[in-house]
């Protein structure tokens, strides 16, 4: 039971990671691929924050009478990664919009057919 509680976080991280990976490599819709990438990204965030958590720790804001804090370094890395992540997601969505305007579709198979019929 202790082993289960101690590793449940990591197993869910792996499930999320694999769901994201599967969505990216098996679906043809470009918007859905981007959402799969986002799920993958969030799973990496969870991996980092789980590694930084300390049992019975408080948030890393120094205060009187608190002895144990969680690790601030993963928080810093992930905090910036989230905002950078939304900026890069927006860039990917912009590319999808341009693909739709040029090809008239966002399905990978149809784009492939259009490319070969020219």
């Amino acid at each position: 039971m202790e082993f289960f509680i101690g590793h449940y976080n990591y197993w869910v991280v792996i499930i999320l990671m694999m769901v994201g990976l599967y969505t990216v490599i098996s679906r043809g819709n470009l918007v859905k691929k981007i959402i799969g990438l986002n799920i993958f990204q969030v799973s990496v965030f969870f991996l980092y924050i789980s590694l930084g958590t300390v049992e019975g720790g408080a948030a890393p804001i120094i205060a009187e009478g608190v002895k144990v804090y969680s690790n601030p370094l993963p928080h810093v890395l992930i905090l910036t990664a989230i905002v950078v992540g939304v900026a890069t997601t927006a860039l990917a969505l912009a590319l999808v919009v341009r693909i739709k305007e040029t090809y008239g579709t966002i399905e990978e198979d149809e784009i492939h057919n259009l490319d070969h019929s020219l």
């Binding site: 986002n38 969030v42 965030f45 924050i49 789980s50 930084g52 958590t53 300390v54 720790g57 408080a58 948030a59 890393p60 804090y69 969680s70 993963p74 928080h75 992930i78 905090l79 989230i82 905002v83 992540g85 939304v86 997601t89 927006a90």
Partner: peptide, 19 residues
């Protein structure tokens, strides 16, 4: 829950809002 209020703040505003 994992004692990361700064990250939670950002994720709530960015993930549930902007994106």
């Amino acid at each position: 829950v994992m004692d990361a209020p700064d990250v939670a703040f950002t994720e709530a505003a960015v993930g549930a809002g902007i994106s």
